[in-house]
Design a protein around this nucleic acid. Structure first.
Lengths: 210, 210
DNA sequence: GTCTATAGAGTGATAGAC
DNA sequence: GTCTATCACTCTATAGAC
């Protein structure tokens, strides 16, 4: 419903407008840090008025959430099959220019723990999804014999994610250590020894079912 | 300089006033969550005007930081000797009534990673201090033979703290697991097997140097 | 259904008197 | 050292045009 014009400046589909706005917020977050982002700037950057922006997103918090989700969408493309989840998230903080996004993520994950916060459900689901993906991946490794059967996959997944999140925090406060190496150390300790499958370089010719 | 009256309502020492204000902020955070705390309420609770509060603390961010520090001071009393650091922090989130403080801590640790944030230095020092304390504790355990010599104390300390921080995050988003048990599991995995000394019950008659 | 113009409410911060 | 008065800014709500 609604005709599609296709020309920039007149959007027939709300989804596109929302995407553009989310991109604008993301750009501003990267440039100035989320604390310096004000809705007026978002409107300017997206090329519409302030209430115009708020027609598409109910509040500023939702704007920031949209930026985070947009980042997930465009940067963390759909995971191939579960095992590369770590590498994807690693990639997410690799560059310094993404520091501001990690900041936003960390700050918002604190705010969003309040059940009344618009992002509450998002973060909850995100944990669940990530935990499930990795737990399944670990179970697969167990089936293949790469990881011992005494490892509790759900617990290990929880702990690996926790470690990752905490390492991000420390790294933000004071960089200067190899966050990837530390994470790998934790994984090795939690799963047992040989687990390049989970975090290492692409398993090129290295099929998991040997 | 300045006379000491001692009667409530007229403070000769700014330090006391600051402490009272910090306590007021802490109370409000616990009651309503930090997002709902406004300086006007702080002023009311502390019994002075809004600019009066802002005379003692330069900004709202500093007020929240003061609450966090105050919490550290009154709740996490000085660590006896290093090894109980985990238990102290555990105690800090044990009760549900403290959820709002953890929320504040998490959110602020994200904001504070911005070097221009008033709490930046606080969090940086906090990480350093905590890491050093625990690393020393681990080294002591190594000297006693309770932990293997191949463990990198600094790295392990970093990872344990990271795990703890991350577990808090997950627990805030969705409680329903035993955060203490998970942490212990991580410690065991990172340090090797027998480490009740570090996290377990009070080492009553259990001297580390047997 | 999508947006602009306008206005308002609430908040953090400042200047200067007491 | 603390208050009164005031300011500036940001987010949000409303009315109505396209």
């Amino acid at each position: 419903m609604g005709k599609v014009t296709g020309s920039r400046g007149s959007y027939a589909k709300t989804a596109e407008r929302r995407r553009d706005i989310a991109q604008a917020v993301l750009d501003l977050v990267v440039e100035k840090g989320h604390r310096a982002v004000v809705t007026a700037d978002v409107a300017k950057r997206a090329g519409l008025s302030e209430p115009g922006v708020l027609y598409h997103f109910a509040s500023k918090d939702e704007l920031l959430l949209a930026a985070l989700q947009h980042f997930d969408d465009v940067e963390l493309t759909a995971l191939p099959e579960g095992e590369s989840i770590l590498r994807a998230r690693e990639r997410a903080v690799a560059g310094v220019e993404r520091t501001n996004i990690v900041r936003l993520h960390t700050a918002m994950s604190g705010e969003a723990s309040d059940p009344t916060h618009p992002a509450h459900e998002y973060f909850k689901q995100r944990w669940r999804r990530s935990n499930k993906l990795m737990a399944d991946s670990i179970r697969q490794l167990q089936a293949d014999g790469a990881v011992g059967p005494d490892v509790d996959a759900d617990s290990a997944s929880r702990l690996i994610h926790a470690t990752w999140e905490g390492l991000q925090n420390q790294w933000l406060a004071e960089p200067g250590f190899d966050i990837g190496a530390e994470l790998e150390k934790a994984i090795v300790a939690l799963l047992g020894y040989p687990v390049e499958h989970v975090v290492g370089s692409p398993p090129a010719g290295r099929s998991r079912a040997r």
